[in-house]
Amino acid sequence: MPTIILDFFRAVWRGPFGPTGLVILGLCVALAILGPAIAPYDPVARNYDAAGKLLRLAPPSWQHWLGTTLLGRDVLSQMLVGARPALLVGGLTALGTVLIGVNIGLISGYFGGRIDSFLMRLTDMFLGLPFLPFIIIVLSLTGRSLTTMVIAMTLVMWRSTARVVRAQVLSLREMPFVAAARITGASDLAIIYREIAPNIMPIALVSVAFALAWAIITEASIGFLGFGDPSVVSWGSIVYDAYASQMMYRAPWWVVPPGIAIMVLVSAVYFVGRAYEQVVNPRLRTG
């Protein structure tokens, strides 16, 4: 396991995009941990000027670098605090996606036959599920919380990982090393998890990256549509507040930063994912 992590960094570190992405990703993780501690103001507190007047839609100034919202809240503080839900929801969803997707792909590909056709039929059904509408319906029916969001997003996302992993397992299970394990008395489970699984880890890592990118955008979109956790300030919810206030077009400092933050974070994830894919996917190696 540690060798895979090491190989991952070694692979990504080549080329210009990988290291850039890794550095940005590292900064975002640091922000997610430290954000609330270094935020200059309480992100939901109203701020007043010297005369005691509410700072409604104040443009950027030395006191408020990114200006304030309609309710006089500090945009920079909201931005700093909003990194955590983005990465938390993204990370947990990516993790859940890979856990389910990898296991279903492994079992489906290894056993084949009826188990395979049942699991693949199931995967196809989930493939037809419209992701955003489904998540929104689940959230609106069961209550808006980060946990529900992670579960709903995982439910619609594991399908692509499962397909990719299964295709890989189909060719791996014919390898002589699988037969070699079988004739030493290894059980099916041992073969799946000790022999085959280590070989699909690189592909699984690539799909973690793409799942992460996708989950961060989706989390923001859900926030923007107003279905995010009402008690959490996220980059998506900042845009939603601006949009719902109808004032967004008068206060670009309120709308522009969260979008840029999401764009930079997701680009970083894509850069890392593609750099790694370039190395582990033999089909792309020439490109």
């Binding site: 923001a220 549509l225 709308v255 979008g259 764009m263 894509y270 850069f271 593609r274």
Partner: peptide, 22 residues
């Protein structure tokens, strides 16, 4: 292209409205 793909679509839409409509 990667950056554009990474941007949230709703945000791109709002920027476009801000620039081209308003």
């Amino acid at each position: 292209a990667t950056a554009l793909q990474s941007a949230p679509l709703f945000w791109l839409g709002m920027l476009a409205i801000l620039l081209f409509s308003i």
